[in-house]
Structures are given as C-alpha cells and as structure tokens.
Nucleic acid binder design. Sequence first.
DNA 1: AAAAAAG
Length: 666
Amino acid sequence: MAMPRKKPKSFKSDGTPKKRWSAAERAARGHKPRRSGGVRNPEARSGRFDRDDRARDRDDRGSRYEDRGFGREGNRDRDRGRRDDRGWRDDRGSGQRWGGSRSRYGWREDRDDSRERGGDRGDRFARRRDDFRGRDGERRRDDHEGREKRRRRDRDFDRDFRRDDRPRGFRGSRRDHQEHPYGRRDHERRGHYDRRSGKARGHFRESRYFDPVEQDQMSWEATTVEVEVTDDDATSGFAELGVAAPMVAALKQQGITEPFPIQRATIADAIAGRDVLGRGRTGSGKTLAFGLPLLTRLAVDEPTGSPRAVILTPTRELALQIADNLSPLATVMGLRLHLVAGGMAYGPQIKAFERGVDVAVATPGRLIDLLEQGIADLSRVEVMVLDEADHMSDLGFLPAVTTILDAVPADGQRLLFSATLDGAVDELVRRYLADPVTHEVDSGKASVTTMTHHVLHVVPHHKNQVTAEIANREGRTVVFARTQMGTDRIARQLREAGVMAGALHGGLTQGARARILAAFKRGEVPVLVATDVAARGIHVDDISLVLQVDPPKTNKDYLHRAGRTARAGEEGAVVSVVLPHQRKQMRRIVGQAGVRTEPVEVVPGSDELAGLTGARPCLGAPVTEADYQALIAPRPQQRRRPGGGRGRGPWRRGDRRDRGHRGERG
DNA sequence: AAAAAAG
C-alpha cells in the first residue's frame, strides 16, 4: 500500500484541497500526533506552571502512596505506561490525571485519552485471555466469540463511562452513577485502589490538602461595611418598595438610589413572600432584585444557625460576584452570608457553617458535597433563589439542582430568575413554584439600544488574521469560542500576533480563573478569550466589544454573550466572525435573537473592518510567555492577610477589595 | 457535541 495518495482527501470550505501536514509539520504547529503514525508532541499542552508542578507532585505523592501500601500497583501501572512506545503517557496523560481536577479539553481530549488508555485496555484483555485459558482449556474453542463479546461489552462500557465527565477516579461504577448524580462516596472515604486508572483514590489528607493544584485556590471573605441610617433613607425609591432602611443606606453609600425596572417589579412581591418568576437579561439588576427582599425577610426572624436562604448559580464566578455584592448588605442587616463554591478551600466554608450561616450563595456541586457530608443543613431554608434558571435546567445541571431543591422544605419561598422561559424552565417552575407571579422586564430579544451588532463574513484563511486585528483594537474585548482548547489556542495565537490575551475556561484551576479575570479587570490583559463560562452574569466594566469567533449555539447564548457589553447604558458592539459554512446557522440565530443586521464581507486590513470594529493591523512583536505569565502570576499579597487570623482582626474586606481591583476604572 | 458543576 505504498501508493501515494493522488486525490486530496478533504477540502476546505472555500473549495481548495486541505494541506496534509507531515508529522513534523504537525508537531511544529503544536498539534497532537495523528491517530496513526504521528510523532510525539514535543511541546505538550499549555500551562507551564501546571505541568511542572503536577509532575513534581506526582512524584511526591507516588512515594507517599507507597508508604501506604498503594504504591506497588500504582508503580507497576505507571511503568507499563512508560513502556508504551507511543510515549504520550508520561508527557501529558498521567501528569494531567494526577493533578487535573477534571477532563480538560472536551471530546477531542477524550478521544485521545481513550487511545492513550488503549495500552491499558490491551493489557487488560491479555490478562483476561490468560485467565480464560488458564482456568478452562475447553473454553478456548469459543475464545474468539467470547473475545468479540467482551470487546463489545467493554466498548459499550467505555462509551457509557465517557459520557460521564466527572474525573476518572471519581466515577464509581455505572450503576452507582445512575443512582446518584455524583456517584457513590463511601469507597472514596476509606480510600481504595482504582484499577481503571491505576491510582490510589480516597480521602487522604495528603491529596486533599497538599495538592499544589488545590492550593491554587482563591479565597473569599465577607465584606464589612458601616452605614449610618438617616431619615431620608425611609423615602427613597427602594424604601418605598419595602427594603429595610440599613440596606437603603448602604446602597446609597454605593451610589445606588433608584431601583432598576426589574427590581421595581419584583421586590414588593418577593418581600410579601410570594414565589416570583423573574425574567430579565443579566445586567438588568437581578442580584438586588432577589437579594434585597431576601435579606429584608430574613432579618425579621431570629437566626437558626443553619441557612435560611440559598442562592444557587451555575458558575463559580457568578456565585462569587453575587456573594461580593450581597455581602455588605447582609452585614448591615446583621446576617451572615457565605460563599459555597467548588475549586476553593473547604476550611473556610466548613468553619462558616460551624459558626452559622444565614444565606448561602452556592454552586450546586459543592453544596451537595457539604450536604452529603452533613456539614450543610438545608432543612430550615425559607427562601430559595435560582439564578440563571434556564442554564440550571440544562440536562447536565438538572439532577444536582433538583437534589438541592428536594432537600429544601417544600413550603418555602422560591425566587426563580431566567433570561428565557423554555420547556425545561417551565418544568422546574411547575414542580417547585407555587402560584408564582411572573415579572418580565426585558423580552428575550436584544433590546438594548446602545448595542450594535455586526456579522462579518470571512473566508477560512483570513479568519485568524481578522480575529487578531479586531482583538488588537483599543479597549476591553471579550472573545467567545466554543471549546476550552479553542480558547487556549486563540489566546496563544493572539499573543503570537502581539495582542495581550488570556484564556478563561472551566478547565483551569479556580485560582487561574480568578487571576486571569482579575488581570482582565485591571486592564493589563485587555483581551479575554473565554468559553461560555463567561457568557452569563459576569460583570466587568467597559467591555466595549464582544467578538464571537465561533457561533453561539442558540439565540439565548448569543444574547448572553452579547450581554457582556453595553452594560449600564454604555456603548458596545457585538461582532461575529462567520465562515461560509456557518452563514445559514448564524443568520438563523441572529434573527431569532431579534437582531437586524446585514452581513458584511471583510478581509484583513480593510477599511470596513476598521470602521465597524476599530480593528488595527497587528504590527507589534509577539507577547513573550514571561510577560504574559507575569501578569497572571499569583499575587500572594492579595490573598493572604498578615496575622493569619481568619474572619477576625482589624482588616476590612473593603480595603482588600480596593487593592484587588486596582485600576478597574481606568 | 460542548461547557458547566465536587474532590
């Protein structure tokens, strides 16, 4: 079969044949090896810190496990991996699986991962075959059929497993997974040796508390403020809605005096204790719309020690933001509010529950975790808030959300906020809300007049350059891409083109997520390349352009992404770069989003491009890795207070925050 | 099919 391929196998969307890179060329471009006959990728994945630290950590922990008697099998397994002459195991696979908290790069990674595990699987088969023959010679006759069967079964098993994107070691058996949204937990408490991954797993202090990845966490502390209540606080727009005076005063201190439409619409009903279904774009002031009535109502009764209100959000960043915004209001009302989110240290959250929490702002996973550990008690929750309910009712989220909703007393008040009301949200509403009042402020369409929309048609070989020139504009830009790997790649390509850009996605550690977001807020990294993790709720001032390099999946996603710009009456543009094969899809999405705009054909360097988006040619030198890392490096002084005492002491969170957000406004 | 959400 040495015949050279005459006909090109595939074509680009503009009709020209696709270049088939050789193995060396692929490697030089940083791609992974082909599925057959590739070379080992010399420059594995991004993340200098991650790789080195994890490799070191792996070795450290390997020896610790040996002490515990887990090491021998683990080592044997790793040695087998090293013998694998495809050679990917050492350089990224095991390192990632030791340190990484979850599958990192979507399906492509999964596919590679499964291939990588092919070595293991082969061995397992070999072992089984040996068992087979050794045990019973007679059965050797139907060995072939048996092998086929086993292969099929194993393949199905693997396929089912891969559908589950919890980290490998935490998956439990298939049956466990079906019964519990997060799998069984009793294996892991005791610690066990996981044959599939060849790792020791379990509740070991070492792995939980000394893991450098885990230490790459951000922290959260409650905000303390002092307010003076004056007489005219009783007459402001908020007071008329029934908001308690201390909060009115605190809001005035922040320059917030008049309620937004959605707040005006929902606050009175919510204070009256009714179930509320609020529909409005993010950025329309939803946080206060549920926060103020919730805190007003809670302050009336004596604290019970266990949470009386839970606010549930789909992303950690959003939970953080809500907790930051509501924390000062809670303190002036004498209520204790705490953040309960994954990726962050357990200690402060556990301590908070020990001291007593009135309001928990939570992401689902960690809350369930604490619930199952018996740390959080939701049996006395009076008010339950679901933010971004349309996202929370996604297939992947729903089990966790209903678990929490079921753990909360059924007769409590429920406030549900959602940008849209589709079937899934409706189901949640019917199951958990009693006689809700619906308030709709913005429709599900793009109604902000300060926002302009552009659809740019480009040919494939121009896309990267057009992207880079737009990103090189003046001002803060968010670039949305579909996949985690895509954001990493685009951010890297932008830096190579001389544009300071960083990637934000759920595959990063929480600390890395926080740092890149902080650098973006400070303005030091003016371009943020993000997955849809940043599409909802995240508020950063002065984002003047949202660039979509991959089309959003739905019109909802379009509007959520668009909602990052043109906030609070500012100007903003939403620009979508569209390839020929995406035109139809994009036209549909834009139309459904209620946007009227004519697509424009653009080429790099053109006047139209510059006129519509402020694009500038990329003339600067590539951003060096060192320069970039310096901007997103951990800043210990932001996260550690002198003296060490947590939750006490003279330091005020306000001081800290001022420093952390240095330069945010210019 | 992706991303998000626990460690």
